[in-house]
């Protein structure tokens, strides 16, 4: 292990909703360039954990560090500008804009209102948008309303928007829900390619997909980290088996290997 400082570090983070602790003294750190998968049964606190990093929720206790400085007290847009991007569980694209304009907004996140009013998109950015449209296969639909896209197309558009935003840390919540097998595989390839230059954290239920990522796995349970390690080790961990046996949601996907 090299002495690389962690890009992201959560220290003893606790979040409570009316007395229910959604996160309990959660500790987690990511090295720059790392690809990490986070799994856990429903209600384990996976989405809450992303909400804390991106500034949507303030933890009651603990602290979150990005490149060594605390994110607490920063707004969502300030955190996004520091280089943290997020893809949501259900695809959230701007329905009344075309895919091209969705991407143009994602790529302009660092601009000020006046820059948007008086400055056009430069050639390099336009090329990038065009390239991303091609990568996600939406060239034909580039000028239609994004609201009319299929679920899979919206998922891909949102992934493309995250890539267009070009954050250092990508937080990806259930990227393959509702995608076909072929699309799932392509998504795994895309995320693997992004890692290295970017740091990627993926939350997913689909175990086959996680296996495909070949990334270290963190298991969340009842708001804290149950265990961490390579997929083979994690899935044989008796605590993990017990947690997943306890909730039948992902039992089959865990056992079929």
């Amino acid at each position: 292990m090299t002495a690389l400082k962690p890009l992201l570090e959560l220290r003893d983070v606790s979040v409570s909703f009316d007395g229910f602790w959604a996160l309990k003294e959660l500790n987690l750190s990511l090295r720059p360039g790392e690809l990490r998968a986070v799994i856990g049964p429903n209600g384990a606190g996976k989405t809450t954990f992303l909400d804390v990093i991106t500034g949507k929720l303030k933890p009651q206790r603990g602290d979150v560090f990005f490149r060594g400085s605390s994110l607490l007290g920063k707004s969502e847009n300030q955190i996004a500008r520091l280089g943290i991007g997020r893809k949501f569980q259900t695809p959230r694209v701007y329905q009344n804009l075309s895919p091209r304009r969705n991407l143009e907004l994602a790529i302009s996140g660092q601009s000020t209102p006046l820059q948007l009013l008086f400055g056009g998109l430069d050639g390099a950015a336009r090329d990038r948008v065009q390239h991303l449209l091609a990568v996600v296969g939406l060239e034909e639909q580039a000028h239609r309303l994004a609201g009319g896209l299929s679920h899979g197309q919206k998922q891909w558009l949102e992934i493309a928007m995250l890539v267009a935003q070009d954050p250092d840390l990508l937080l990806v919540d259930e990227p393959v829900a509702g995608l076909s097998d072929a699309e799932t595989e392509r998504t795994a390839d895309l995320l693997k390619r992004l890692a290295g230059e970017h740091t990627v954290l993926v939350i997913e239920h689909d175990m086959e997909f996680i296996r495909n990522l070949q990334a270290p796995v963190t298991v969340l349970h009842e708001g804290h980290v149950l265990c961490e390690g390579p997929m083979e080790q994690v899935q044989n961990d008796p605590r993990v088996i017990e947690v997943y046996l306890g909730s039948d949601a992902d039992l089959e996907t865990m056992e079929d290997h």
Binding site: T54, K56, S75, E76, N77, A80, R81, G85, R86, F88, R92, Y94, Q95, N96, L97, R101, E104, L105, A106, S108, G109, Q110, S111, P113, L116, L117, G120, L121, M161, Q165
Partner: peptide, 24 residues
Amino acid sequence: GRFGDVLVAIRDDEPRLRFTGYNT
């Protein structure tokens, strides 16, 4: 232009826009 797109995006999904870096 893009300024107008931001307005429409605020109408349709403002929190999403904040997570992209826009101070809505």
